[in-house]
Structures are given as structure tokens and as C-alpha cells.
Amino acid sequence: MKAVKIQPGKTVGVEEAPLPTLRESQILVKIAAVAINPTDWKHVEHGFGGGPGSTVGCDLAGTVEKAGPHSRFAPGDRVASIVQGCVASDPTSGAFAEYAAVDEHAAFKLPADMSFEDAASLPVALVTTGLAFHDLGIPATLEPVRRGEPILVYGGATSVSQAFIQFAKALGFEVITTASERNREYLTKLGADHIIDYHDTDKCIAGIKAALNGRELKLAHDGISEGDSFRIVFSSVTPGPDTRVTLVLYLPASDVPSGITATTPNGTLALGRAVDYAGMHFPASPELAKAHAEFTLLGEKAIANGVVKPQEIKKLPGGLDGIKDALALLKEGGGSRAKLVLTIS
């Protein structure tokens, strides 16, 4: 098969590669479409995870080619999933290829009317949302069990935040989010109740406080985790033993104000294996793998019922040969709101 591999000199190229070997409880998927995530180009440029020879990519959609006798999947099923890209110990692990070994508990079936390109925009967003809900103590359900409770989603137009908003609304949360004015109508359709412009930090904090109208804010998700986002989020929540914030980038514990518990969900830990990333070692977490398995089934149901919809996508040409340019485009900011996707087969 062909696969996009990291090359010397912090770049990528298409190479011939062997088919991945399936572990127990994995399925073989013929990849039809992939999506580009910031972590993809960061792995290539900064050497996170595997180096030259590693396969790149996390988001995929395609058709099951092979499944075990006790699998809930069968050959021909249309699925989407997250996989771990850029793995030093397994150079075949990654989404940007013609085939991938996919963990069954991470894969979800697609509605008949959903394109592979739309589906490829979902897996990383779903796994990160699911792990964020786990860290925030939010139950994996589509019932309105948190009706009227405020929650802050900073950076509402990001891929993860779009999924987060839709799930939060299904649970009954009153969603306060931040975004540019041009994204107001779009995020309103996703279910956001209050949309605050983030460009002026002090005005943004004041806008969030106004939306709270004197209520305490105990839960927040920072979908940017850079620059002024920390100040805005930490200034908006009410410190206390039950106050929790999830981030998408790591922040030293010493930088987190007292009275706030801040965690960074790591989507690759949801696959149930240890992860070496950016010079750090994360041991395998059966707890997170179980939480992800439960949320994946919930996500499959939410997508089938139309509760959660794919985000806008921007289709790019070239298939696997177009991945290099797609990574450069995303790095330069070309993926605002719309997910960059490529058709593979």
C-alpha cells in the first residue's frame, strides 16, 4: 500500500509500505477520506512521537476490509475512527495511507447518507470531547440531565469545540462560547446560547460575566489554550473544589490558579496503549479507553439521530500526494472553522 511518511528534513512524502498487522480487537479499514489536524504538522515539524519512517495522520473514514469473528463490525461496513499517527514503535500506524489498523472501540458506523469526507471530520473531535466530558465529570448521555447549568466553551469555532457545543446542548447545558463575529450565526445554529467576541480580553471577560448574570461557573473547556485564552477562562470560572477546566494544550500545574482543576485530554490515550509524546511518557489508561469506548457508542447514536452534525469541510485535491500541501495550509491558518479533508479512494 501507499502511505504518507515523515521524511528527513521535517517534511513528508508518499512511500510504499506493508499492510498493517492487526492486533487483537482491531479491524482493517480501506481508507476513503482523511482530515488534517494541527497535531499532524506539529508531529512532523517538532518530532513529537515517531521520526522519519512513521506514518502521519489521526482522522480517517472508510470501509471495513477485515474484522474478527466476534467483532460488531463486518466487511463492507462504513466507519470512521481515530488512529495514532507518528508512532515510533509502529511505523504502519497512521491515517494517511490506503489502509489502517483501527481499534474496534474507537470506530463508529456511519449513516448511509453521510459522505466519507464529512465523516472524516469527526473522530478526533469526538474523542477529545468524550475525554473532556470524562475529566469534567459530565455523564456520557444524550439526556438533558444538566438543564440550564452554564458551561463555557472558549474558541467555539474549533473542530473540537463544535462537537463539544452540540453534545453540551443535548445534555441541557446553557452554552457560553467565544468566537469572531463572523462565526456568530454558525455557532448559534450549533446550539450556543451566548457568543462573546474574544478580541478584547477585558470585554470578553465582562461579556461572559454578563451572560452568567451572577451565577457561578464551574465547568469550562478551553479549545485554544494559547495566549489570552488562559486569562479569560480562569478569570471567568468560580474557584472551588468542583471547578474543572479542560485544555487542548498542556499547561504546567504551577500556572493554574488555586481553586481550579485543569486537565488536558490526550486522545491517543483513549486507544488503551502507552504514549510517548513531546518528550513525555504517558502510561496506558484502561479507564480512559473504557470512557472512550462508551462515548464512541454515544457518538454513533448522536450522529445517527442528527443530534451531532459534522463540521463544515474544505475538500483539497491530490489524495495522499496532496497531504504535504494540506499540512502547510493548516499550519498557515487555512483551516479556520472548516476542516481540511482529502479523498483517498
Score class of each variant (00 low, 15 high):
Pro265Phe: 02
Ile27Met: 07
Val308Gly: 01
Ile303Leu: 15
Ser115Glu: 01
Asp193Gln: 08
Ala35Tyr: 00
Gly334Gln: 11
Asn37Ile: 08
Val307Leu: 13
Thr21Arg: 14
Leu340Glu: 07
Leu28Asn: 03
Ala101Val: 05
Asp202Leu: 05
Leu298Asp: 03
Leu212Gly: 08
Val87Thr: 04
Asp228Pro: 13
Ala100Asn: 03
Ala326Met: 07
Gly318Val: 08
Tyr198Thr: 07
Lys5Asp: 02
Glu98Arg: 08
Arg147Gln: 15
Ala278Arg: 08
Tyr250Thr: 09
Met114Val: 00
Thr177Tyr: 06
Ser93Asn: 06
Asn266Asp: 05
Lys189His: 14
Ala125Gly: 15
Thr11Asp: 10
Val256Gln: 08
Leu297Ile: 05
Leu28His: 05
Cys58Pro: 02
Pro150Cys: 03
Asp325Trp: 11
Val307Thr: 15
Glu216Ala: 14
Ser161Val: 10
Ala112Ile: 03
Ala17Phe: 04
Arg147Phe: 11
Ala291Glu: 13
His43Gln: 15
Ala220His: 10
Val248Phe: 02
Ser115Val: 00
His134Gln: 11
Val341Gly: 01
Ile208Asn: 02
Glu312Leu: 13
Gly53Met: 03
Val341Thr: 12
Ser71Val: 10
Leu288Glu: 11
Gly335Trp: 12
Cys86Lys: 14
Ser258His: 12
Gly156Ser: 06
Gly223Tyr: 10
Ile195Glu: 09
Phe133Ile: 05
Asp321Glu: 15
Ala262Trp: 03
Ala211Ile: 07
Ala278Tyr: 00
Ala132Val: 01
